[in-house]
């Protein structure tokens, strides 16, 4: 199947009375790296969380790799998916959080092998071999037996990336992966992400790192008040943005 990896059509999301997403429509092609920009509270993170069903959408259609997220369509009827089916969908989407969310009672190694063993039923020795490989790739070969509390923020985030990659996801979501890091630790995490983008991973990255967005992204998407107001290549964004709000935002952040 060579359709889009992510397809959103008029996605709506409400928290009580508050309308957070007011009709988000976009497509992400396989292998594409899309950075989402926008002021805080514009709904970027919420949209990202909708893609792997951590949040339920209230309206519109959202599909990953041709399959609706969290729902199944039979003719014109829409059924909610069972827990097990939602889990199966999520297992194919990697997510990296702003606050890392490493499992505190497990070592770096145990963090990475947990899901492959429990969810994909990979043999422990095989999972460990692969985890070692992944942790080496993110530059943490010497931290296999460290607990998260013993690692710096940047190291924790790289373990979190390795943990997500261990499930061989077809799509990676990054929710402000460097926002909680000390400035000097940001570089290591961005390097890992750049390499991942080069290797052809499909990525959606919510970020405020303009440098990364400019050089690593294929496309930038600007969100404001729960909708996408501009969508285009990095050159287009940084040289002649059309929308007034985008101009304002960029002038503040650059």
């Amino acid at each position: 199947m060579s359709g889009p990896m992510v397809k959103a059509e008029g996605v709506h999301k409400r928290f009580g009375r508050l309308e957070v997403l007011t009709g988000v429509s976009m497509e992400v092609q396989p292998g594409e790296v899309v950075c989402m920009l926008g002021p805080s509270g514009s709904g970027k993170s919420t949209f990202l969380r909708c893609i792997n069903h951590l949040e339920k959408i209230d309206g519109g259609r959202l599909s990953v790799d041709g399959q609706l997220v969290g729902y199944r369509q039979d003719g014109d009827k829409i059924h909610e998916l069972r827990d097990a089916e939602v889990c199966r969908e999520r297992a194919e989407i990697g997510m990296v959080f702003q606050r890392f969310n490493l499992f505190g009672h497990m070592t770096a190694m145990e963090n990475v092998i947990e899901a492959p063993i429990r969810v994909k039923k990979v043999k422990k020795s095989e999972a460990a071999r692969r985890a070692k490989e992944l942790l080496e790739r993110v530059g943490l070969a010497d931290k296999l037996d460290s607990y998260p509390a013993q690692l710096s923020g940047g190291q924790q985030q790289r373990v979190a990336i390795a943990r997500a990659l261990a499930m061989d996801p077809k799509l990676m979501l990054f929710d402000e992966p460097t926002s909680a890091l000390d400035p000097e630790l940001v570089g290591d995490v961005l390097d890992v992400m750049r390499q991942l983008a080069k290797d052809g991973m499909t990525m959606i990255v919510v970020t405020h790192e303009m440098g990364f967005a400019r050089e690593a992204a294929d496309r930038l998407v600007m969100m404001c008040d729960g909708a996408i107001i501009e969508d285009g290549s990095p050159e287009h964004f940084f040289t002649n943005p059309e929308n007034e709000r985008t101009k304002q935002f960029l002038s503040k952040i650059l």
Partner: peptide
């Protein structure tokens, strides 16, 4: 136990029972 732990486990495809037994209860 922080909610982020549950979210991280869910985002990896772990079921509710697995999340409770392997991630939340031990912590």
């Amino acid at each position: 136990v922080e909610e982020g732990q549950t979210e991280a486990a869910q985002s990896l495809g772990m079921t509710r029972l697995q999340t409770m037994r392997r991630i939340v209860l031990p912590q």
